[in-house]
């Protein structure tokens, strides 16, 4: 994974601190061209991996990338699935079974029901696989070396103790898409223990890491301890804690931590993208200089 990854929250009105800013972003990015332009700014700043939700509109971005192969030679996408609000709204309307019937492609559920037999474990896993396939359709022909499960699902299954399902997802994306299965979580300490418990070693985990401990469940100390001592490939997200930490302090903290493989950030303007990228490079250089000095 590259040191810096570009995120997509700003494109889809996900702002954790202000509904007003969310609305402004919605307006700003309602045309796909605006998203593409911002992506080009990121690529121009050397950030060629786009980590994105499987939102319907990402399909248009994928289409554009496929149609302009020359402009996106080193471009990678890390899909994060599912776009949870789609399913959550369907569950509200149709119930859990109804929502599955709506989204599991083909007549898989119907044929199981008609068969009248009890569901087997492999049937549930087939449902999961069909859902993954339907979310992955839009990425056909695009380089997707890591495929993530969104935190709402990772953490839901984690709390329910359904770690086998997490493992099945991990194994399936490896087998079918030749990709690394990654997990987004707000609960790094608990997730890492459970994944190791089912034999997933050195997993890719994207999690909140920031100087003020925002959304670092179990406490900042537990996270720092893990980074210092455990085998895990961490992507730091929410580094700015939704703007609560000044950028320089925020980036400096993360760059000085051991074992952070990548830093995920999102920004709307060319200037903000360039500023964040150069802050990361600057702090990486001074952090490695410090390390050499201590050696």
């Amino acid at each position: 994974m590259e040191r810096i990854l570009f995120g997509d929250n700003q494109f889809f009105a996900v702002n954790h601190i202000s509904d007003e800013k969310s609305r402004a972003q919605s307006i700003r990015f309602q045309d796909d061209k605006a998203i593409l332009k911002t992506l080009d700014h990121a690529i121009g700043a050397g950030v060629t991996t786009f980590m994105c939700t499987t939102h319907d509109r990402i399909a248009n971005i994928c289409e554009h990338v496929r149609n302009h192969p020359g402009r996106y030679t080193d471009f990678k996408m890390f899909p994060c699935m599912p776009y949870a609000h789609k399913y959550a709204n369907a569950v509200t309307e149709l119930g859990i079974l109804g929502a599955l019937q709506e989204y599991v492609p083909g007549n898989f559920l119907g044929s199981l029901y008609k068969g009248g037999r009890a569901f087997l474990s492999k049937d549930y896993l087939s449902i999961m696989e069909l859902l993954v396939d339907s979310e992955m359709k839009m990425f056909k022909g695009i380089n997707t070396p890591v495929i993530f499960l969104q935190n709402i699902i990772t953490d839901l299954l984690l709390g329910l103790g359904m770690i086998e399902v997490l493992k099945s997802f991990y194994l399936y994306v490896q087998k079918k898409y030749n990709a690394e299965g990654g997990f987004i979580t707000m609960n790094l300490p608990k997730l890492l223990n459970e994944l190791e418990g089912v034999g997933i070693e050195n997993p890719v985990i994207c999690t909140s890491i920031n100087k003020i401990g925002f959304r670092m469940s179990g406490g900042i100390k537990a996270y720092e301890e893990i980074l210092a001592t455990r085998k895990v490939r961490v992507i730091a997200m929410q580094v700015l804690a939704s703007g609560a930490i000044p950028p320089n302090d925020a980036i400096k903290y993360v760059c000085n931590l051991p074992n952070i493989e990548s830093i995920l950030f999102g920004a709307s303007s060319k200037a903000n993208i360039q500023e964040t990228v150069s802050l990361i490079h600057k702090n990486d250089v001074s952090s490695s200089a410090e390390k050499i000095a201590t050696v």
């Binding site: 670092m216 469940s217 179990g218």
Partner: peptide, 9 residues
């Protein structure tokens, strides 16, 4: 916001 032990939504 105080941290919680386990964050879901």
């Amino acid at each position: 916001t105080d941290n919680v032990n386990f964050y879901l939504r």
